[in-house]
Design a protein around this nucleic acid. Structure first.
Length: 124
DNA sequence: CATCTGACGACCG
DNA sequence: GCGGTCGCCAGAT
């Protein structure tokens, strides 16, 4: 699977800013949502200058195996994105793909699949 | 083909 | 605020 669009978008993240998996997913209109983005990030090829460390979880939380989490925190703090404990102040450092990355395609057809649930779950 | 897992997100208790 | 669960999709076994 080529996650090029995801990597490309990640590379658009300016230094000193961060974005979330969910934002990337919504920006790319991925059916899988944040999950697929996380999957893509997990397979991020090294040596391409992809700032994977600028991609964090929702709410500025770091979600990943320890070795990477530690490195990510260090890299971000180096770029000027301080951590408040185990998270980042998204209010100040959140970066929106739409704002920073200009979309070449003016309009894209919704890739939404006609998947729907038969009936509402009792989860109410 | 069935089942589990995973660098997520939202909701509930 | 934290932990557990469900929903979502893709890949591996």
């Amino acid at each position: 699977m080529s996650w090029d669009p995801v990597y490309r978008l990640v590379k658009q993240i300016p230094r000193g800013r961060v974005t979330t998996y969910g934002e990337l997913a919504k920006s790319l209109r991925l059916r899988g949502g944040a999950r697929v983005v996380g999957y893509a990030m997990a397979a991020t090829p090294r040596g391409r200058g992809i700032p994977w460390h600028r991609v964090i979880g929702a709410g500025g939380k770091v979600t990943m195996p320890e070795p990477h989490a530690s490195l990510q925190r260090r890299l971000l703090s180096t770029e000027g994105v301080p951590f408040e404990g185990a998270r980042i102040d998204m209010k100040l450092y959140a970066w929106s793909p739409k704002s920073g990355a200009k979309s070449h395609a003016k309009s894209r057809k919704p890739k939404r699949k006609p998947t729907r649930r038969v009936a509402p779950k009792s989860r109410v």
